[in-house]
Simulated assay, not measured.
Amino acid sequence: MAKLAFLGLGVMGYPMAGHLQSAGHDVTVYNRTAEKARKWAGQHGGGSAPTPREAAAGAAFVMSCVGNDDDLRSVCLGEDGAFAGMEKGAIFVDHTTVSAAVTRELAGAARAAGLGYVDAPISGGQAGAENGQLSVMCGGDQDDFDRAAPVIGAYAKICRRLGDVGAGQITKMCNQIAIAGLVQGLSESLAFAQKAGLDIGEVVEVISQGAAGSWQMANRHETMAAGEFDHGFAVDWMRKDLAICLAAGDEIGALLPVTALVDQFYKEVQSMGGGRWDTSSLIARLVK
């Protein structure tokens, strides 16, 4: 068991930090809204700190799950950043979905300070975080990963190293690219069935048993048909992730025509007031 810090208590980070505490680790949390950190500490029995630096002091591992590149820089760097409070040999594990560029930047700063760095973005949504069933895709030195993996295991159903620093973020981009096209295809299929006068439940029962079947189909077709979009990852965050994917595609020369198109469809959902709807809300623009 280890002394840990967890930075960022959003819908993912809050339960993830709780799993670490439940596993027997000594966890101190930091959140930009201090009241939420105090609430977590009262609920789980860990500690809270007013700055990332104080949360990270003496921790063998510091986990983060914040919003974007700038948020990640703010909790890592500067006088009150985590890197300033970490001891040499400690490892920073970032679960935020950010650009590979900021990952390489911060990994370099960590190495200069004698720290390890593992980029470890996650997939599985709020339910996966709450149930400790996240997929964690990692990049970093093998030794750093080998040390961090048992700790990450408190909330992971799979934790895999894909390569050096940045490989985790690139793999998360693959994940988001695959999801974007899949959800659009499912949305068109359900809307088509509805327009044709078929019973969506009966259609899904049949086609889900063949090659069209997917987790999204099994778990979201009913709520999509009902226009209920409060079940997970928000459109605003998906557009942030897809912007990262498209920028990386330009950088490496990878063509992402479907991803670019679906990004614009999500922009349309935002214009409908659906920025906080979950990603299955693509169907809303087809059945309005």
Score class of each variant (00 low, 15 high):
residue 127 A to E: 07
residue 95 H to S: 04
residue 105 E to A: 02
residue 231 H to T: 05
residue 138 C to V: 12
residue 198 L to I: 13
residue 147 R to K: 15
residue 219 N to R: 04
residue 186 L to I: 15
residue 164 D to F: 01
residue 173 M to N: 10
residue 139 G to C: 09
residue 94 D to H: 02
residue 146 D to K: 04
residue 105 E to C: 09
residue 234 A to G: 01
residue 104 R to L: 14
residue 174 C to H: 06
residue 126 Q to L: 01
residue 110 A to V: 13
residue 185 G to Q: 09
residue 167 A to Y: 12
residue 181 G to T: 09
residue 132 G to K: 05
residue 113 A to H: 03
residue 92 F to H: 15
residue 168 G to V: 08
residue 116 G to T: 10
residue 192 F to Q: 09
residue 160 R to S: 06
residue 155 Y to K: 00
residue 229 F to C: 10
residue 213 G to N: 06
residue 211 A to T: 13
residue 169 Q to C: 07
residue 125 G to W: 08
residue 171 T to L: 02
residue 186 L to Y: 11
residue 201 G to S: 09
residue 181 G to D: 01
residue 231 H to S: 02
residue 214 S to H: 06
residue 209 Q to W: 00
residue 202 E to N: 11
residue 124 G to R: 08
residue 136 V to Q: 00
residue 125 G to C: 01
residue 234 A to M: 11
residue 141 D to G: 15
residue 185 G to Y: 13
residue 92 F to L: 14
residue 200 I to E: 06
residue 91 I to Y: 14
residue 229 F to K: 10
residue 117 Y to T: 12
residue 201 G to Q: 07
residue 143 D to C: 00
residue 198 L to E: 07
residue 169 Q to I: 01
residue 208 S to R: 14
residue 100 A to C: 03
residue 195 K to N: 15
residue 123 S to N: 02
residue 159 C to K: 00
residue 231 H to F: 07
residue 146 D to I: 05
residue 167 A to D: 11
residue 212 A to E: 12
residue 147 R to D: 04
residue 131 N to C: 12
residue 117 Y to K: 10
residue 126 Q to T: 10
residue 99 S to K: 02
residue 113 A to E: 13
residue 205 E to T: 10
residue 204 V to T: 12
residue 232 G to W: 08
residue 145 F to C: 11
residue 222 E to V: 15
residue 208 S to Q: 15
residue 130 E to A: 11
residue 226 A to E: 06
residue 167 A to C: 13
residue 169 Q to V: 01
residue 186 L to Q: 15
residue 214 S to Q: 08
residue 121 P to W: 07
residue 155 Y to E: 00
residue 144 D to L: 09
residue 226 A to R: 15
residue 118 V to M: 08
residue 191 A to I: 06
residue 206 V to F: 04
residue 119 D to H: 05
residue 157 K to L: 00
residue 113 A to F: 01
residue 175 N to A: 10
residue 112 A to K: 13
residue 105 E to G: 06
residue 105 E to F: 12
residue 228 E to I: 15
residue 138 C to S: 14
residue 187 S to N: 11
residue 151 V to S: 01
residue 179 I to A: 12
residue 125 G to Q: 07
residue 142 Q to G: 04
residue 222 E to R: 15
residue 89 G to I: 12
residue 182 L to T: 14
residue 121 P to H: 05
residue 175 N to G: 07
residue 186 L to R: 12
residue 119 D to Q: 08
residue 133 Q to D: 02
residue 175 N to M: 11
residue 96 T to Y: 10
residue 120 A to V: 04
residue 221 H to V: 05
residue 162 L to N: 12
residue 115 L to D: 01
residue 171 T to S: 11
residue 173 M to S: 05
residue 225 A to E: 15
residue 230 D to Q: 05
residue 122 I to F: 04
residue 170 I to T: 14
residue 215 W to Y: 07
residue 139 G to N: 09
